[in-house]
Design a protein around this nucleic acid. Sequence first.
DNA 1: GAGCTGAGTCAACATGCGTAGACTGAACGC
DNA 2: GCGTTCAGTCTACGCATGTTGACTCAGCTC
Lengths: 185, 185
Amino acid sequence: MTTRAEQRQRTEARILTAARRLFGEHGYDRTTIRAVAAAADSDPGLVMRYFGSKEKLFAQAATIPPDGPIEGSPAQIAELLRAGLTQKLAEEPAAALAALRAMFSHPEAAEEVRAAMTGQQRQVAAQLPGEDAVLRSGVIGALTLGLVIGRHLVRLDGLDADPEEILAIAGPLLTALTDTATSAD
Amino acid sequence: MTTRAEQRQRTEARILTAARRLFGEHGYDRTTIRAVAAAADSDPGLVMRYFGSKEKLFAQAATIPPDGPIEGSPAQIAELLRAGLTQKLAEEPAAALAALRAMFSHPEAAEEVRAAMTGQQRQVAAQLPGEDAVLRSGVIGALTLGLVIGRHLVRLDGLDADPEEILAIAGPLLTALTDTATSAD
DNA sequence: GAGCTGAGTCAACATGCGTAGACTGAACGC
DNA sequence: GCGTTCAGTCTACGCATGTTGACTCAGCTC
């Protein structure tokens, strides 16, 4: 016996999970409401009734959970960045992957990702010394983006290694980027 | 007075240029044959007659010109990588951007990019010393990918700087990645 | 100059999509 | 128990898309 509320919650969750997976695998345009409904053992009409529109379904499925605050000395910041990167490499954050894959063809998704990234970058840039802090935080963002995309989306050669192995190579780069050891300031 | 061959070549080129731009701006699915034809001051039917299908048009528009061979000592390799990166940051390689943007929703485009990237990575990995050469070349690829995407496609904070400024930060990272100074080998 | 070829235009097609609305039956409140 | 609500299903609409084929007319071959 299942109450109506339970049932509702269950199928809504099933739809959301299916949506995240399909958006993450095929992007926004190639993911159809019909396909999501089928994958969730449900019905297109129901998806519409629960989420309003494909756009709103995507917005709910691809909302990127914010990382914790990043603050402290450059060394501490580097450590936090390494921890965040390890996590992003180890798991497959379905919502983030959906947003990432969609961002290149779907402006709304691009905004979601840009907001999530620049939020972090600004925090980092504000606490790094040196005139080129913004540029440095940009390169940090690019490196992170490249690694996550390269591992989860493009599956670049060599990036299928254990996260710790990748961090053994990429970690020192983050340290180098947070340390002020380059040009005059 | 224009000969038929000239005319043909001219509109074909116009279509290809428009296609590259639109594919690069909006991705594969959101670029319509009709839009390409309109941008090229031409006609959808003509586009079909000249290129056969949207798929073939894309294949011609998004073929990535190969970089030169990469070989030499680690230091020389780093130098070649820096030169390649500078170029990729300075210009906006329309064909490559089209392939890059499309690759996240279009498997054929993904193959094109992966082929172009792993080709280079293999060259690099084969000439770097150390057991983790493949992983290192993967991180090099990720960094390059992240910077190009971050600058041209996502427009990350800070990456709108002059290419030389970016290379002042990212160049040393490439050197670090080609030098064997990490774990035992 | 006659006949042919191919560049360019236009209208139509089949398909797949997001979405809307009617319908059914079981859980719910009283 | 009875009327209401709401999860779930099915059908259909309107639209945009890739693609096709017929048509026109200027350049080409002989």
